[in-house]
Amino acid sequence: MTRLIAGVAGGLSLATPDSRTRPTTGRTREALFSRLDARLDFTDLRVLDLYAGSAALGLEAISRGAEELVAVEAGRTAASVARRNAQAVGDALDQASARPARITVVEQRVQSWLSGAPAAHFDLVFVDPPYDVSTAALETLLVDLLPALSPLADVVIERSSRTPDLRWPAGYVGQPPRRYGETVLWFGESEDARVG
């Protein structure tokens, strides 16, 4: 069982999919959101959660004030769990008389969904692919993601500490990775295309 950390729905328990899905540990989620809290105001953010699993990362952002979440997950079981979690968070927002958020769970392969993604739309993106997705494939995905990002969007990637280091493609500014046990988080930001 996973719990949301903070915000309107803080403390809410979320269901997790079966053992084929690897949820982000509580320690890693706390470190991730502590870092994001230091640099972002979640209010009105449009969030994309790729390889969403239970959608815990995106729903944490919704709990903290984000206005929209699109969670993309190809696995039928995981997408069903993400929908149930989205409903629970939506109900918690309603009970707290908080501003409603738009939450959409898309059961589709990430690369396929990206081909029709809205342009310059998302302010914060979580990318948590299965560890067997190669670093080269992930770098290609980041190129395909770029048109969907608003200027200066934040992108967070979760990988195994055993995977090869990521090289951010042109269009991104990367920060040094942070390691949490067997997990490494990569933080990047899309460049502002309006500059120059």
Rank of each mutant, 00 (worst) to 15 (best):
T183Y: 01
A136L: 10
V70K: 07
G75K: 12
T43D: 07
L124M: 07
L69H: 04
L141K: 04
A74D: 09
P151C: 12
L185K: 09
L149T: 08
A9T: 10
S161A: 15
P176I: 02
Y131F: 15
P23I: 14
R159W: 03
S161F: 00
L69A: 08
V156I: 15
S112F: 00
V156L: 13
R29H: 02
V195A: 14
L32H: 05
T2M: 14
T104L: 12
S19E: 14
L152R: 15
A71Q: 10
L32T: 07
E189G: 00
R76H: 06
A153F: 02
G26W: 03
V105Q: 05
I5W: 00
E73Y: 01
R83V: 14
Q95S: 08
A86K: 05
S63R: 11
A9M: 11
A71P: 05
A31H: 01
V72T: 11
L141H: 01
V156E: 01
A92F: 05
L124Y: 03
G65P: 07
L32G: 02
S161N: 12
H121Y: 13
L48G: 12
P164L: 05
D144A: 15
D154H: 06
A9L: 11
S19H: 09
S80A: 15
P118S: 11
F33G: 05
V110P: 02
F126N: 05
V72D: 08
T183D: 07
D132G: 01
P130Q: 09
T140N: 01
S54W: 04
A31R: 12
A82W: 01
L145H: 03
L124N: 06
G58D: 11
V173Q: 12
R159S: 09
G90A: 15
V195Y: 01
F33P: 04
F187E: 01
T25L: 08
D123F: 00
R178M: 05
L36K: 07
P130W: 08
A137Y: 01
